[in-house]
């Protein structure tokens, strides 16, 4: 059991309770111990930075200072919300990168009797810790109900893979971490082309028409790929794609119904947890039907294999880049 400092973020105690419950349910079997930062405050999302940069960073840094105080030998903060993760990582990055700026923020913290040493803690998202620290072997060990037959569109949104100050993800546009995790759960993973496109962010609040357009692009693309479930890693993405799917349908006169779940909810199912304890039922577009198929686990009736038309062999495709390509370049 490794202990991590845990920063849940505001959504986890209101709109994303399902995420909180499922995170708790899957971390235990994976040996991830979560020590919640005591008396943490809101990270300011994308809003405080818009108003006042220095107070915005000071607000974030109070959490880092608390975490440093309460670290007790641990070095890693896990933030499961992408916006919280990025804000914490960003504050640490700029305080470290720009010494004068770091001193200014610490001067503000000093007014509350606090201090943070830039670079002291590593801010990471839960997905990154599961892939790179815990490892997929450990995940596979825990799978008792493989998600066979469930077609999943892995959706990461923006703030996890970008700008990626810690260079923790395989790519800023098409990272494969979530795909690999879902494959390990036995699901059929779709190569979702829009996996890091924007969910609309706060545009649902300030320019709904623009937000609906972004949501529509994601949902219709997932639908065209016969997606059963979209999987997210962020409360904001989940909210926009799920709760606003209905309004988006009204806006475009469409009738999409694709359930949107947190990745930990599906991990929980695969680990054999009860759906009730994973926050199922709180989604607007019900995932009950999709999940019931996993539970039945009956092999799908074999369809007549389509008769393949004799196709011309076509031109060869370039091979996809491998991990070794990446490492070799780093050495160049």
């Amino acid at each position: 059991m490794s202990d991590y400092i845990f920063y849940p973020g505001c959504s986890m105690e209101s709109s994303a309770k399902a995420y909180y419950e499922s995170v708790m349910a899957v971390c235990k079997p994976l040996g991830i111990g979560l020590k919640e930062i005591e008396d943490w405050n809101c990270c300011g999302a994308t809003e405080y930075l818009s108003l006042d940069i220095t107070p915005a960073y000071a607000l974030i840094a109070r959490n880092l200072a608390l975490a440093e105080e309460q670290a007790n030998g641990n070095k890693t903060i896990i933030a499961p919300c992408s916006a919280c993760y990025l804000n914490l990582a960003k504050a640490d990055h700029y305080m470290h990168d720009d010494k004068a700026f770091g001193n200014k923020i610490n001067e503000a913290l000093a007014a509350g009797g606090m201090h943070y040493t830039p670079g002291k803690l590593a801010v990471r998202h839960l997905l990154d810790v599961i892939i790179n620290e815990v490892g997929l072997d450990k995940v596979k060990e825990n799978v008792v109900k493989p998600l066979a037959g469930l077609r999943i569109a892995p959706y990461l949104g923006c703030m996890l893979p970008r700008p990626d100050y810690g260079k923790r993800y395989s790519d800023t546009e098409h990272p494969d971490e979530l795909d690999r995790l879902l494959s390990a759960l036995g699901a059929e993973v779709i190569d979702f082309p829009l996996k890091t496109h924007c969910c609309g962010g706060h545009m649902t609040q300030i320019g709904p028409d623009t937000a609906f357009e972004m949501i529509h692009r994601l949902i219709s693309s997932a639908d065209a790929l016969n997606t059963d479930v979209i999987v997210t890693v962020c409360p904001m993405c989940q909210m926009n794609l799920d709760a606003f799917q209905g309004q988006m349908n009204n806006h475009f006169k469409t009738n999409f119904k694709i359930p949107v779940l947190f990745f930990t909810q599906l991990m929980g199912i695969a680990f054999g947890e009860k759906a009730e304890s994973l926050g199922f039922g709180s989604e607007f577009v019900s995932a009950a039907e999709a999940i019931s198929r996993v539970r039945v686990q009956a092999p799908k009736p074999a369809e007549d294999a389509p008769v393949a038309k004799k196709k011309t062999p076509g031109l060869p495709m370039p091979p996809l880049r491998t991990k070794t390509d990446h490492t070799q370049e780093a050495g160049r």
Partner: peptide, 19 residues
């Protein structure tokens, strides 16, 4: 230059993108 390094251009993923 190995165009696969630019993920947003899709070379290697999208068949009809050529170098």
């Amino acid at each position: 230059f190995d165009a696969r390094k630019i993920p947003n251009y899709g070379y290697g993923r999208l068949p009809n993108v050529f170098t």
